[in-house]
């Protein structure tokens, strides 16, 4: 008996699942990238924190 394990339906489902997988991984990479860029744009966080808290910063301390 010749049983066909792989049907065209399975290929289609695989393409759908793989596509969705790529989209989700892509979204994670994008959000991670946005986070990195945004954090770098903020600059030195402890310095900003010190300034906001009224503590001496590196520039003011010189």
């Amino acid at each position: 008996m010749d049983l066909k394990v792989e049907h065209e339906m399975h290929k289609r489902r695989f393409s759908r699942n793989a596509g969705l997988g790529f989209v989700l991984v892509g979204l994670v990479v994008l959000v991670f990238g946005i986070t990195i860029v945004k954090v770098r744009m903020i600059g030195n966080v402890p310095e900003a924190y010190n300034a906001a808290a009224g503590l001496p910063t590196a520039e003011a301390g010189e």
């Binding site: 008996m1 339906m9 393409s15 969705l20």
Partner: peptide
């Protein structure tokens, strides 16, 4: 036959969407 058995199992899924249909 094996062929008709195969078709009867999958006949409900032949119009199932692929990734490209969602993209469209």
């Amino acid at each position: 036959s094996d062929m008709s058995a195969d078709k009867s199992i999958t006949s409900g899924f032949e119009n199932e969407a692929g990734f490209s249909d969602y993209y469209a």
